Amino acid sequence: MNSSSGHDMTSHGGHGGARPGGLSVSESGYTLDLDSTILSAGAQAVTFRVTGPDGRPVTEFTPEHEKELHFIAVRRDTTWFQHVHPVRDEKGTWSVELTLEPGDWRFFADIHPVGHDGTMTLGIDASVAGRYDPQPLSEDTRTAHVGEYTVTLDGELLPGEASDLTLTVSRNGRPVTDLQPYLGAYGHLVALRVGDLGYLHVHPEGEPGDGTTEPGPGITFMAAAPSGGTYRLYLDFQHEDVVRTAEFTVRTTAPTPRSDAASEAAHEHMSHRHNGHAHH
């Protein structure tokens, strides 16, 4: 399967930095249908279907990044992020084990139904019973610690404009140069807009085995923010057969109006960067 190019901002709800995905339970006749939107806390199976324009469960999907469906679960205070891969039966019912804390959650299904032009991200709310202790949003954070690993984020998320984000992985102070492929890439990045959990989903530039992409320590993504605001970024990476998640908070502001000359110069600069002339 071919991974989506890092330059393709139309996939996974990116829409060229315009409207993010995951804001609707239904799109183009496809609907995310949970068996129950009220759940108990703890580890449990969550079951759902994706119904098509004919009202029936969809059973044919084009794999994207090695999976027919990517399922993202996150509590609405942006904690307890989980990226999992459910199993589908022949009738079109998906099931997956989640560990849920009390509170309000958002579930996302990232899919490419056969016959539909491109991927889509559907989103639905669920409530988990129990005492809800929402956590305050972290400050703008560019360094994440995951056990022995440290991941640093370089670059800016720009509203309506594609830009490079580089995440660099080290372990106990030493660069990690033997990252393992995960979902057809050396890292998997999800970005959510704080406030409505609008969903951006991009993959790194390059892919394992292309002759130029190194297995660390840096993983470069191209992304565009749909607006100014605060975003939560979640990087999944695999090392020594374990997938880990590093979390970041990034604040971005809407661009200030520029003169035509300045805008043209900036556009020219971005064109060079996207054509592979960027020097990091």
Rank of each mutant, 00 (worst) to 15 (best):
M9P: 00
T10H: 06
H15K: 13
A18E: 14
R19H: 13
G22W: 10
L23T: 11
L23V: 10
L23G: 00
T31R: 14
T31S: 09
L34H: 11
Q44R: 00
P53L: 09
P57G: 10
P57I: 07
T62A: 11
K67A: 05
K67G: 01
L69F: 08
R76G: 01
D77I: 02
T78W: 11
T78E: 13
W80S: 14
P86H: 07
E90R: 12
G103K: 04
R106W: 03
A109Q: 08
I111T: 06
L122K: 04
L122W: 06
I124A: 15
D125S: 12
S127Y: 06
V128S: 04
Q135C: 11
Q135A: 12
R142K: 13
A144V: 01
V151Q: 09
T152I: 14
L153D: 04
L157Q: 06
L167D: 01
L167N: 02
T177M: 12
P181E: 07
L183V: 10
G184T: 09
G187H: 07
H188K: 09
R193N: 03
G198E: 08
Y199H: 07
L200C: 11
L200P: 00
H203Q: 15
T220D: 09
T220C: 08
F221I: 01
F221S: 04
A224S: 12
A224P: 01
A225N: 01
A225C: 08
E240F: 01
V242I: 12
R251H: 14
T253F: 08
A254G: 03
S259Q: 10
S263G: 11
A265E: 14
E268I: 14
M270I: 15
S271Q: 15
H272M: 15
H280I: 12
